[in-house]
Amino acid sequence: MLYINCPHCGLRSQNEFSYGGDATVKRPDLNKEISDQDWDNFVYNRKSLRGKHWELWQHISGCRQWIKVERDTSTHEIFNTLKANEETI
């Protein structure tokens, strides 16, 4: 079970969190023209990376904050965690 350092609460076990997918996906702005292809990429197309990956987790049984976690998808090593409003490096 992963040990995730919530930037708001500290180290907590994985069973307090729920996974939220790729953290680098940006939602297109509202009321802005967007091509079918770009919208498709936003809604459906995700890379399934092996290695370091920025992903979203929500501390659902804790502070309920969405956080960003840099994790290696093959070794589960966690390198960094950020608050929702902090930019990934």
Binding site: S18, G20, R27, L56, Q58, I60, R64, Q65, W66, N85
Partner: peptide
């Protein structure tokens, strides 16, 4: 609830 929190915290802070 998670859906609303997602948009408030990440998309439209």
């Amino acid at each position: 609830l998670s859906h609303l929190e997602y948009y408030l915290q990440l998309v439209w802070p």
